[in-house]
């Protein structure tokens, strides 16, 4: 009975996806975590663990913002360039333009938010796909970074500024606190506030959201602005940690960030997912990078592995939709 067998297979798959939605990512993370621990003894060392989560924070802060944008059915490729540009501006204020701590924190954050606003504004008002708008922005702000820096990295931050990326509060690195703070705040916003619920509604069915009187454009622009702001925050953390505004900072971050969100179960079609999944997704990406490093695998291979993971995650999402009970 091939028909019955097919039905049975569908049922099994449906059950699997329900299960996967709940605990799948967490389980995958635990398996990878234990696997690397078994392969390299150094992996479980507290210093290494701290190192991993600190690195994850830099990507993770952006991934929190990206979760909002992807939930809306959007995408942003310019985040890496925003990291570089805001980082170089922060370094500029630290080293070249008077050394004000206040300005070197506030101006980059505002610029990050401003670029995000432009991404949202141009894509909604111009009715352009955010993919193409942010692709352009990615190039524009990489160029702007080189222009501001005049082709040379800007190094030598003040100790106070260095705290952002390298400081500790008790045993916990400051960026980790920033990251977890963002995750918790975003979780509350998405679940409990009108803003969060509209993000889901718009991603689920934009037309219906419009007919219900939801100001779709305004929420889209807000989400992009938030993402730009958080990318700016990531730029501050990175510049502070490296003690330098680097020209190639943030290069390729868009992949890690989007991978974190998608692995975390947020659908690229929008409307479904959440920020706690993104937390696990970011940790998974971080652990894979770190583990492969410790194993002495060439960085080139890491890029290949990450690319495969992203495609796999999107495929899984597609399959999930196909085998959904209707």
């Amino acid at each position: 009975m091939p028909v019955l067998a097919e039905e049975r297979a569908t049922q099994v798959l449906q059950k699997f996806f329900v299960f996967w939605d709940r605990v799948g990512i967490l389980l995958a993370f635990i398996v990878v975590f234990i696997m690397f621990g078994a392969l390299t003894p150094v992996f479980f060392h507290p210093i290494n663990i701290l190192n991993v989560i600190r690195q994850v924070s830099i990507i993770g802060v952006i991934a929190v913002g990206m979760t909002f944008v992807i939930l809306l059915g959007g995408i942003d490729l310019s985040v890496g360039s925003i990291v570089a540009f805001t980082g170089i501006i922060a370094a500029g204020f630290q080293v070249k333009w008077g050394g004000s701590l206040f300005l070197s924190i506030v101006v980059p954050l505002l610029i990050g938010g401003g670029i995000g606003f432009l991404n949202g504004f141009i894509s909604t008002k111009g009715k352009l796909h955010p993919f193409i708008v942010t692709l352009g922005m990615m190039s524009i702000f990489r160029g702007a970074t080189l222009l501001v820096a005049q082709g040379k990295p800007i190094s030598g931050m003040s100790p106070a500024f260095r705290f952002i990326g390298a400081g500790m509060i008790g045993p916990i690195p400051f960026p980790v606190i920033l990251f977890l703070g963002c995750v918790i705040a975003a979780g509350i916003v998405l679940k409990r506030t009108v803003f969060g619920r509209y993000i889901y509604a718009i991603g689920g069915n934009e037309e219906a959201a419009l007919l219900s009187g939801i100001m779709v454009e305004r929420y889209k622009i807000s989400a992009f602005t938030l993402l730009g702001f958080l990318s700016g925050m990531s730029g501050l953390i990175l510049t502070s940690r490296l003690n330098s505004g680097e020209l190639v900072a943030g290069q390729g971050y868009e992949l890690d960030v989007i991978a974190s969100v998608v692995i975390g179960g947020t659908s690229l079609m929008g409307g479904e997912g959440g920020v706690y999944g993104t937390l696990i997704g970011a940790l998974l990406i971080g652990v894979v990078s770190n583990g492969l490093n410790l194993l002495g695998v060439q960085p080139y291979w890491q890029m290949i592995v990450k690319g495969i993971i992203v495609i796999f995650a999107v495929l899984l999402d597609r399959l999930k939709r196909r085998f959904r009970t209707t």
């Binding site: 889901y200 509604a201 991603g203 037309e207 219906a208 959201a209 219900s212 409307g271």
Partner: peptide
């Protein structure tokens, strides 16, 4: 066409007037 398929009944019921 005016329902959000990915959201539950109360969310759709109150859509835009939460």
């Amino acid at each position: 066409l005016a329902l959000i398929e990915t959201r539950d009944v109360p969310a759709n019921f109150f859509l835009g007037r939460e």
